[in-house]
């Protein structure tokens, strides 16, 4: 460091601390020495800095040392952080594995399930367009048909999404270590989500065509679709796909059946009023049924265990 100093009697206060520390280069230090010889003010200034420096050093000498065990605490912190990082990484691996399982189900699910749902929804749209004029006066009828068809499409899809005799990929799944429960939840989300998306699009088209809000049409099928899909899954897991489809159809028809029958058969009234609507009860029962089906699923024979 080249100090600013005196060839012209300028004082050198600000370089004195650096001079004191021996942080000036040889030439700089020599100039300071030369200036100090001729300048009493700067000599006093240097003594003051020496006093300050001495005070700082003396105060530091009396300071305690850190605990001899301090490094143990450091290693404990480092190990704890390494462990936390490891857990975070394994969590990321689990999430990635789940994502892979989820996306790989798309090609494994029987193609007819995807196609059938599209056909049902296209049919619905065509029917509404063809009977445009009369449909406008008979919104209830349109809602009933929408609810019946979309619900049946979802329930049937669910019934066939997970059964050995209808699933070529089933054998492969059974021979992998991936949990059947995880596979089932992924497929349920995929099939029901797919059907809900399609039904929502159809509802939007109908709402635009006939007037009304999206929710006017969505609440007709949302609860029944989830409930019937969960019933369908449970029955399929226990009794097989065919029985499941039969039960779903029966329930869907009961949902759509004319009001006059409700007075004759109280069960239909109870079902229609409480369950086959978009109500919290319907969601709760659907949830319980899915939990049961997921719990029950691994009881089916697994190739990987045999």
């Amino acid at each position: 460091m080249m100090p600013r100093m005196s060839q012209n009697n300028q004082h050198i206060s600000d370089v004195l601390p650096a001079y004191l520390n021996g942080r000036l280069d040889a030439a700089g230090a020599e100039r300071v020495r030369a200036h100090l010889e001729t300048c009493a003010d700067c000599r006093h200034e240097l003594s003051a800095w020496e006093a300050v420096s001495g005070a700082a050093r003396l105060a530091s000498v009396s300071l305690p040392a850190p605990s001899p065990m301090l490094m143990n605490a450091v290693w404990a912190k480092i190990d704890a952080q390494d462990k936390a990082t490891g857990q975070q990484k394994s969590m990321q691996r689990v999430m990635y594995h789940l994502w892979l399982v989820f996306t790989r189900q798309i090609p494994l699910i029987h193609k007819s399930i995807w196609v059938a749902s599209i056909l049902v929804n296209v049919l619905m749209c065509v029917l509404v367009f063809l009977s445009h004029a009369s449909a406008r006066h008979n919104l209830q009828g349109v809602e009933g048909v929408l609810s019946l068809f979309t619900t049946i499409a979802a329930a049937t899809g669910v019934a066939f999404m997970y059964q050995a005799e209808h699933d070529a990929g089933y054998e492969i799944i059974l021979s992998t270590p991936t949990s059947i429960r995880i596979v089932m939840i992924c497929r349920m989300i995929l099939v029901v989500g797919y059907n809900m998306a399609l039904a929502a699009v159809t509802s939007a088209i109908i709402a635009i065509t006939l007037g009304g809000t999206l929710w006017d049409f969505m609440h007709i099928w949302l609860g029944p679709m989830l409930l019937l899909a969960s019933i369908s899954l449970t029955v399929a897991v226990i009794f097989g796909s065919v029985v499941s489809v039969a039960v779903s159809l029966l329930l869907a028809v009961m949902q759509a059946i004319a009001t006059s029958f409700e007075q004759a058969i109280p069960l239909i009234h109870v079902l229609r009023a409480n369950l086959l609507q978009t109500t919290p009860t319907a969601f709760f029962i659907a949830f319980l049924l899915i939990v049961f089906a997921v719990y029950y699923a691994p009881r089916q024979p697994r190739l990987s265990n045999s």
């Binding site: 004082h11 206060s13 600000d14 003010d41 700067c42 006093h44 200034e45 003594s47 003051a48 020496e50 006093a51 300050v52 001495g54 005070a55 700082a56 003396l58 105060a59 009396s62």
Partner: peptide, 23 residues
């Protein structure tokens, strides 16, 4: 501060222990 302090000489004359306590 650009020049010498007026207290320069007095600071140098204070006892070391006292300086350390003040520090």
């Amino acid at each position: 501060a650009t020049g010498p302090e007026p207290e320069a000489c007095t600071l140098a004359s204070v006892a070391r222990d006292e300086l350390a306590e003040a520090f």
